[in-house]
């Protein structure tokens, strides 16, 4: 039995809990600090991305292009479900003409940015975390440092910007495909008047208030999700288990961050105060 274990056995239960709590707090804040520094160095490394656009394009492919199919199919189904559900409620009040507005407003304001960010965290975020974590576990990152190549500039920064740029485009695709899905169900299947579907949508959706705010949301989500994913990978314990934990944490923390930030942003943008 080591000294420390003996101490732990002798001390009262409360002290043990307190010590545990203290370590937890220190860990959380330490990680937050490391994360902030990590973000700072990544942003500083952005110059490297501008001088080597090739690095960015390769990452835009693996982060953005490969997510398109998932985003488009999900968007289509979300739009179709919105139209079906909205129709059953709206037709009770004889207001099925506003179906287009309802579908477009929910997609552009909320579901487009949020659901595509959640999918993005699952599809691209986990892949980024696993990739970086494995690079660390197999000492590729230290190898690069040995060769005087800064892994933050060479590996992290291009991925960060790729995620940050892809997210608004993916969210816009999601909303667009969703509106088309809502149109297919609402107009072609349920028989809502086509003219009313589009004109109510155009009358209700404001460019500055709805679309620009939706894009701002998705930019923020893209920033946060990519940051979390890259940092979790970079900060992972260099073992197989560490990489698996980093991947899990990426998805869980991203989901929390997206939903919490969405509330804050919505309150700021659409709250009347």
């Amino acid at each position: 039995m080591t000294n420390r274990e003996r101490d732990a056995q002798d001390e009262p239960f409360v002290i043990g809990r307190l010590r545990h709590l203290g370590r937890l707090t220190l860990n959380v804040f330490g990680k937050l600090g490391r994360g902030a520094f990590f973000l700072f160095w990544t942003l500083l490394g952005s110059r490297e991305v501008l001088t080597r656009p090739g690095l960015l394009i390769v990452q835009l492919h693996s982060v953005g292009v490969l997510s398109v199919l998932l985003i488009a199919i999900s968007g289509l189904f979300v739009g179709m479900v919105l139209a079906l559900q909205g129709y059953t409620v709206l037709s009770d009040y004889g207001a099925e003409q506003t179906l287009g507005y309802m579908v477009a407003a929910s997609l552009v304001r909320e579901l487009g940015p949020v659901v595509s960010a959640l999918l993005f965290a699952g599809r691209a975020g986990s892949a980024l975390a696993a990739e970086i974590g494995l690079m660390k576990a197999t000492e590729q990152l230290s190898g690069m440092e040995m060769m005087a190549v800064d892994p933050i500039k060479r590996i992290i920064a291009p991925r960060f910007f790729a995620g940050f740029l892809s997210m608004p485009l993916l969210a816009a695709l999601f909303s667009t495909v969703g509106i088309i899905g809502g149109y297919l169900i609402g107009v072609d299947m349920l028989g809502v008047d086509e003219g009313a579907f589009w004109s109510r949508m155009q009358a209700g959706i404001d460019f500055d208030e709805d679309i620009v705010n939706g894009v701002i949301k998705s930019v923020v989500f893209g920033f946060v999700v990519t940051w979390i994913a890259l940092f979790e990978g970079y900060d992972a314990v260099a073992t197989a288990e560490g990489v698996s934990r980093a991947t899990t944490r990426t998805v869980v923390h991203s989901a929390f961050a997206i939903l919490a930030l969405d509330f804050v942003l919505t309150a700021l943008m659409f709250g009347d105060f």
Partner: peptide, 27 residues
């Protein structure tokens, strides 16, 4: 890869354009 990324960016911008012109009151 270059072609696919180009298509992706074009599709994203087109989607934004669709939202602006077709779904909102910008027009």
């Amino acid at each position: 890869v270059e072609l696919l990324v180009g298509l992706f960016v074009a599709a994203g911008v087109l989607a934004l354009f669709f939202l602006a012109m077709r779904a909102s009151n910008l027009a």
